[in-house]
């Protein structure tokens, strides 16, 4: 009995120490990425290649999801608003919910599962097949050559993807609301324009998506870099990337929203 409870306490302590250890390593890793990112701008070709892989190839899923999310918002918003006779506010509802919340958050979640998992798997396999060690042997810094370009590519792609998500979502809401249901077009756009502020809504959405880009890519890169060099280790790391970065995005979203729109 005593033995078992002692073992439980020891296990908990072990896990806590391990977690703190990993957190410290992650912070040092993040700092190293920032310090070694000169090369990803001097040799921008490296970053461009990564923007292609994580940004351009995520376009399809982002655009299709954005269109459908906007269309669903249009339908559901219309159903609720018409009960109060204010269908003309449909444009406001669609635009504000996309620009402030759904655009940045959903784009980041999709980005985490589409590009983040790929980054983790790639880095993890590079480590498992000792490509990273080989680079170190050739006096090539793997952080500067492999990690930093991927990091900056993610940070650059994320706001662009989120903006495209919001823009096409508004178009989807327009398609359903105005073209399909028949809300007045002039009211749809004019109410939207009077309610959406550029600095307060659009720019805050862009800032949010930049923060999400940093969080998702940093988590994906670290999980890949820290993965045990086995098939199982890489698969666990990939799962952890999606789970951790999704949770991080949602938690950060709450914090940022609290700061931006309530002004605590």
């Amino acid at each position: 009995m005593l033995d078992r409870s002692l073992a439980a306490i020891r296990g908990t302590g072990h896990r806590v120490v391990n977690g703190v250890w990993r957190l410290g390593f992650a912070s040092r890793f993040f700092l190293a990425v920032l310090l070694h990112s000169g090369i990803s701008f001097r040799r921008f070709q490296l970053t461009i290649k990564e923007i292609y892989f994580s940004g351009v190839l995520s376009l399809i899923i982002i655009l299709v999801s954005g269109l459908f999310v906007g269309m669903v918002l249009g339908l559901q918003g219309y159903e609720t608003l018409q009960k109060y006779g204010s269908e003309s506010a449909l444009g406001t509802l669609v635009a504000l919910s996309l620009v402030r919340e759904l655009g940045p958050v959903l784009a980041a979640l999709l980005f985490a599962s589409r590009a983040g998992s790929a980054i983790t798997a790639e880095i993890g396999l590079m480590k498992a097949t000792e490509q990273i060690t080989a680079m170190e042997m050739m006096a090539v810094d793997p952080i500067a050559r492999v990690i930093a370009p991927r990091f900056w590519a993610g940070v650059i792609s994320m706001p662009l993807l989120a903006a495209m998500f919001s823009a096409i979502g508004v178009f989807g809401g327009y398609l359903v609301g105005v073209v399909m249901i028949g809300v007045d077009e002039g009211q749809f756009w004019s109410q939207m324009q009077s309610a959406v502020d550029f600095r307060l809504d659009v720019m805050n959405g862009v800032i949010k998506s930049c923060v999400f880009g940093v969080a998702v890519t940093a988590i994906a890169l670290f999980e890949g870099y820290d993965a045990p060099p086995t098939a199982e280790g890489v698969s666990h790391a990939t799962t952890r990337t999606v789970v951790t970065s999704s949770l991080a995005v949602l938690a950060l979203d709450f914090l940022l929203t609290a700061f931006m729109f309530r002004g605590i």
Binding site: A167, W189, M192
Partner: peptide, 13 residues
């Protein structure tokens, strides 16, 4: 991406 931000600024905002 930049065009999307511009659309959000001009047409939506």
């Amino acid at each position: 991406g930049l065009a999307a931000i511009l659309v959000l600024a001009m047409k939506v905002g």
